[in-house]
């Protein structure tokens, strides 16, 4: 398992490590106008970076029958799937931490800062669970069909981002939104976070079963 993780982490570092600094640079350049639309857009880039790396990685691995190679080694389906899921978890957690640190630096308004943390937390949990469902699809109906769905999720996320930005532009009172979110009990976010990770773990178990059952087709 460790071998696959090391190999994939190197890939994530190369891919995210190339694009993320460019994004951070852009954020710092428009630091003075880092408002709600900017936070929304950063959420889209969060998903874009993770789903993009998973897409490139898996298209390579499926195309080159790397799963067949794994199957000839002393590895079981659980080792393979766990390695993949932990890799995504590490990458997502890295982006979550990095984004949070950057928000704390470039967002001066306290309410807006709280909103940005909660927003990126939701992005993290949503990304994890969408990617988990995509992996289940990769192992049950194949990468070609499921790869298309990955693009659809990306487009949907983009559309939602554009819509939320548009709503802001038609004078949604952002301060009210920030105030509302910051008043929600912290316990709620703890429960949401726990539920998000629990669901990710549950989906990982389903993905392991799918790979075990459909190895012939992967």
């Amino acid at each position: 398992m460790i071998g696959i993780m090391k190999k994939n982490i190197t890939f994530f570092i190369q891919y995210i490590g190339f694009l993320y600094p460019l994004m951070v640079l852009y954020w710092f350049l428009r630091k003075d106008s880092f408002d709600l639309p900017a936070i929304m857009i950063s959420g889209f880039f969060f998903y874009l970076l993770i789903s993009g790396s998973v897409n490139i990685l898996e298209s390579y691995e499926f195309k080159n029958n790397v799963y067949h190679f794994f199957k000839t080694l002393p590895l079981n389906a659980g080792d393979i799937v766990r390695a993949k899921f932990y890799n995504v978890l590490i990458a997502v957690f890295f982006l979550f931490t990095a984004n949070s640190v950057i928000y704390s630096i470039i967002i001066p308004d306290k309410n807006m800062q709280v909103f940005s943390y909660i927003f990126i937390l939701c992005c993290m949990l949503l990304t994890l669970n969408i990617i988990a469902v995509l992996y289940i699809g990769f192992f049950s109906i194949g990468f070609n069909k499921m790869g298309k769905l990955l693009w659809i999720t990306l487009i949907l996320w983009l559309v939602l981002t554009i819509l939320s930005v548009e709503m802001y532009l038609i004078k949604l009172d952002a301060n009210l939104l920030y105030a509302f979110i910051s008043r929600i009990n912290r316990m709620v976010w703890v429960i949401v976070t726990f539920a998000g990770f629990a669901s990710y773990y549950g989906l990982m178990r389903i993905a392991i079963r799918q790979l075990e059952q459909n190895y012939d087709n992967v």
């Binding site: 029958n65 790397v66 000839t72 079981n76 080792d79």
Partner: peptide
């Protein structure tokens, strides 16, 4: 015992798959 069995098997397939 998948891992234990495969630790004791050497396999050469019809087509050899590796990281290209």
């Amino acid at each position: 015992h998948e891992k234990e069995i495969k630790n004791r098997i050497g396999y050469v397939g019809e087509v050899q798959y590796f990281y290209e």
